[in-house]
């Protein structure tokens, strides 16, 4: 069993990313979408939480691009995917947990 978690809030305003990471198992994946993509920026507290977490972390590239965050700003260990990757991640895991 493994779960795809999605996070759509900025970690600079809400605790959803931290809460998600602390409830995700090592076999899980976490995908940051919408304003959640700000959590992927390197050198931040969120990036430190991501690198300490066991789950594999992804970010939705089109939401990054929309917000003017270039991929060279993305923290190590975070992989950029498109909607094709989003659908694949949802299919590959047993359930999807949206951290609304």
């Amino acid at each position: 069993m493994s779960i795809l978690h999605t996070v759509n809030k900025s970690p600079f305003q809400k605790n959803d990313l931290a809460s998600c990471l602390s409830h995700a198992s090592d076999a899980d994946a976490v995908l940051m979408i919408e304003d959640g993509v700000y959590g992927a920026i390197k050198g931040t507290k969120a990036a430190a939480q991501i690198s300490a977490a066991g789950a594999t972390v992804f970010v939705l590239g089109v939401d990054l691009a929309a917000r003017g965050i270039s991929e060279d700003k993305i923290a190590d260990g975070v992989s950029v995917v498109g909607y094709d990757g989003f659908v694949k991640l949802a299919a590959e895991h047993n359930a999807v947990n949206s951290w609304l």
């Binding site: 602390s22 995700a24 359930a95």
Partner: peptide, 18 residues
């Protein structure tokens, strides 16, 4: 505890969020 809840969540088939 948070760890116990983590284990409960890992075992679910459908997760409803609001």
């Amino acid at each position: 505890s948070r760890d116990e809840l983590k284990a409960v969540l890992a075992d679910q088939d459908v997760i409803m969020s609001f």
